[in-house]
Design a binder for these strands. Structure first.
Lengths: 155, 155
DNA sequence: TGACAATACATGTTTAAACATCTATCATGG
DNA sequence: CCATGATAGATGTTTAAACATGTATTGTCA
């Protein structure tokens, strides 16, 4: 028995389809993110910080500069320098002033950061699998496709 | 030409399906919420504050107590009393100590709050329609259904 | 080349989020 | 009916988010 958003939030009035879709997506993101944050919390990371580490792990050996990291974030963060400051304090990343353009600062993940990500890889995969185990994979693939289209109105 | 999340975020490695779904949902929520927040900002409201007002508009004449409002939020907020404080300062809601149980405080939307919601109704509907106009409605309905199921693993 | 604009990031400040703790009121069992 | 515990909010505090502004470096064009 699947509960609709309407029931979940005990809403008194139904919503127009477009608004319902928006609300449902935001709600679903909140639910997934909560489960996700629970895995990260014991390790002292927020989802956004984890996102940064993943980006830097994926980046090449010369790291990425601040605005590049910001541009790849799942959700925009308005103060990437200070977010990197905190990760640096945790010794999870380092920053080096770029030589080719001294305005830029390249951020790199440290071995400690890599090790942390490594220990998280399993639990993260597990929580995703658990949360979505009841959905058949064809449907998940279709969902991905729908969301890609939703985000990109073809001009 | 639809861009995948992979391309959007310039990710260097692909993700397992389950994780990709999580990321895609969170990303889509961020995109929609940004457009939504733009509509609210000129009126000095955050999406969460708008959410509270909508909940209180939907509630009956005796309003809702603090924990009821918190329980209906799209995303959990950890400090509903102070969130209501701010809405009260804006004169958008009022609070009355409940007579039947003096521990509780019932929050009510004010005429000013109702008027604000009323002026927002149009623009909000528009931004939703614009964002989703390129999707056919059958597909949106299917998306709603998929997300409902995703959030509610049937035991 | 040298002034001016643009870029990349740093820093300051205000506000709110997040978490813990405290107070007032009610429910319950002896 | 009183003690104990539970519930509903309020309040205190720390941290981070959000926004504006400042500074160093580079690009550009007269």
């Amino acid at each position: 028995m699947v509960r609709t958003l309407h029931e979940e939030l005990q809403s008194d009035q139904p919503y127009p389809l477009e608004e319902a879709v928006h609300l449902s997506i935001v709600r679903t993101a909140a639910v997934l993110d909560h489960a996700f944050a629970q895995v990260l919390k014991p390790h002292g990371l927020t989802p956004a910080q984890y996102n940064v580490l993943r980006i830097l792990r994926g980046a090449g050996d010369d790291g990425l500069c601040v605005y590049e990291v910001a541009g790849r974030m799942l959700r925009p963060v308005p103060d990437m320098p200070r977010m990197l400051d905190r990760l640096k304090q945790m010794r999870l990343i380092v920053r080096r002033r770029a030589t080719e353009d001294r305005r830029m600062v390249r951020a790199h993940i440290t071995p400690k950061g890599l090790a942390l990500l490594h220990t998280l890889d399993g639990p993260i995969r597990e929580v995703h699998e658990q949360r979505l185990a009841h959905m058949n994979r064809t449907r998940l693939a279709a969902l991905l496709d729908t969301l890609d289209q939703l985000r990109n109105p073809e001009t």
